[in-house]
Design a protein around this nucleic acid. Sequence first.
DNA 1: CTAAGTCGGGAAAGCGATTTCCTACGGTAG
DNA 2: CTACCGTAGGAAATCGCTTTCCCGACTTAG
Lengths: 365, 365
Amino acid sequence: MLTTTADDGARRPGRRRRPRPDSAVVTLADVAERAGVSLATASRVMGGSTRVVGSDLRDAVHRAATELGYSANLQARAVARGMSDTLGVVVHDIADPYFSTIAAGVMDVAYAGSMVVSLTSTSADTDRELEYVAMMRAQRARAVVLIGSRTDDQRATDELRTELRAFTRSGGRVVCVGQDLLGVDTVMPQNADGARDLARALVSQGHRDFVVLAGPAGLRTARDRVTGFRAGLADRGIDLADGDVIPGPFTRDGGYEAASAVLAGRVRPVCLFAVNDVMAVGALACMRAAGVDVPCEVAVAGFDDIPTLQDVTPPLSTVALPLFRMGEMAARLALRDDDGGGGEPRIVPISGQVLLRQSSAAFRR
Amino acid sequence: MLTTTADDGARRPGRRRRPRPDSAVVTLADVAERAGVSLATASRVMGGSTRVVGSDLRDAVHRAATELGYSANLQARAVARGMSDTLGVVVHDIADPYFSTIAAGVMDVAYAGSMVVSLTSTSADTDRELEYVAMMRAQRARAVVLIGSRTDDQRATDELRTELRAFTRSGGRVVCVGQDLLGVDTVMPQNADGARDLARALVSQGHRDFVVLAGPAGLRTARDRVTGFRAGLADRGIDLADGDVIPGPFTRDGGYEAASAVLAGRVRPVCLFAVNDVMAVGALACMRAAGVDVPCEVAVAGFDDIPTLQDVTPPLSTVALPLFRMGEMAARLALRDDDGGGGEPRIVPISGQVLLRQSSAAFRR
DNA sequence: CTAAGTCGGGAAAGCGATTTCCTACGGTAG
DNA sequence: CTACCGTAGGAAATCGCTTTCCCGACTTAG
């Protein structure tokens, strides 16, 4: 040491307190000091402890906090308390109205419970889903809500289950909106039943000839709806040929493509069932582009009753699901603070309601 | 002390280490112990430090971590490092395609930078917006992206500016997608210019008679678009009477209502300009319900070019904004790690492109 | 052959909270 | 008048992780 500075001697590893040159961040210690109380008291006042603090000191602390513009460091609090206020939400695609509506429901409840919502859009990539759950575990999130269909990918499902188990074991809660394949609390739309009801209703309207735009092969929601639909037709003595089940992406464009395949190779009139509304909307667009009249030449029906449907022409027949409320329910399941482990996972079945609108009106004969 | 227990003496305030009865949570200390290294070394390996660690120890730590299923506590890390990996995003309504598309862009970039996105939907409530920014400050978020129009509410704007200043002073970054009223980096759609171009284009198509569905009175985006539209008409010698500017909510239903007011009190044909697409879609629905033909009796144009527009009939004329890319740009501004203070806020102007489609085709005379 | 650097590793001081103990204190019961 | 108790406040131990110091062992010069 060549230069002799004013402060030396007292310098030990990990210095006491930085000179706070910029006064940037205000800590609880600053507040305590300013209020002339101990750190413990300041914490009790600011942190909403059960312990009573005398009103004089309490006021002093509040005043100091305000004057200093104090804002509690939630991360530090989470570390000390061992639990955070984060709620993780996983969706396949936030720009898809199905997901954004459910997510909106989740967020409403989360907001009411003053939770911080951390959201991710996975593009339906199971690896990203897994990755994100791991991240939520690392964040020590209070709960995770998984919105969206499970797949048939056994490896992915197993990995996810393992990760979720690790998450719950570390105190987190998990809720799924979709199928009950994860062994966690689940808000479960009755996809098969809804599709079955829809099929019967369409038959009652006079339809006899069907094609199903079936979505991706491995997606449970898609498959359940196809299965249910087929069962509904069978109930009425109608057989659905395998060739009339057309797979494709679960998206608007997927619906469009699948629909144009139908137009190319199928005699009309025919009734199209798209396994979700987004695809059905794509199918409608395809018909419009091809100059095919709906419902006169081709009838169309979807599933979900997404909000955007109110602006689609012709009005689309569908199976209505209470999307927003499903989100609320999921959030409430996630945030309830009872047990948290032992019991069996809770399953909340959600039944859909058939809505027959103009897009599936009977063909004129 | 009446009972004599095996362990006493050593019991001092704040006991050493809990017996870990459930082995629930694995900490870095557990990993270090298992790997037979110091806590420091374990941290250096797991935390991606710059310090080099011998490959043998490195492997040992990794192995121990895997065997134990270790997952770093990000909150604790954030406390220690003094900075988190959270990116806060504020939107008015996540179920509105305008916002969800921009948000999707933000999230894409955030994901690429392995940030955790924390999202809130404020219902355009300025208090909630403020509240959320405060929460992000408390979370020590790395940055906040505010998506959505500013308002004329001076008090709200001032409060928000104050809170944002506190946030930036504590090291956070702020980006706004909207107007440059906050003194922060801003991705700024050229609303007035776009509306002006649209007005001229509509006039070129032969329209002479206009009504504007103007949205809420205090919303800057809405007002800028009205102003620009009026200027564009003036450029062509057309005057827009104040009575032909109809205020209303910035939503689909708002557009519907405003449009029915127009139908009730206005001679046709007339050209409607709704200041955003969502409203325009509502207006179209209203026309359809009223049996008014678009574009033969009433022409309609919107603004934004939201993705859902591709399924609206008739195809809607609008001013296209690169929504997804705007989100990406905002996120990139928020995450860039240069300076972070001193300089002037950056403004990225985004110009819209007029898209004339069927909904505003010339009236037949 | 010794002086001066690297280099890898560990001990321990924080980070910003919470929370457990412990200790006065004023009051009431015995 | 003294013993006992509920209260309110403070000191200090953690929470889980990062990072600064310090140190011994090896290199590499001089």
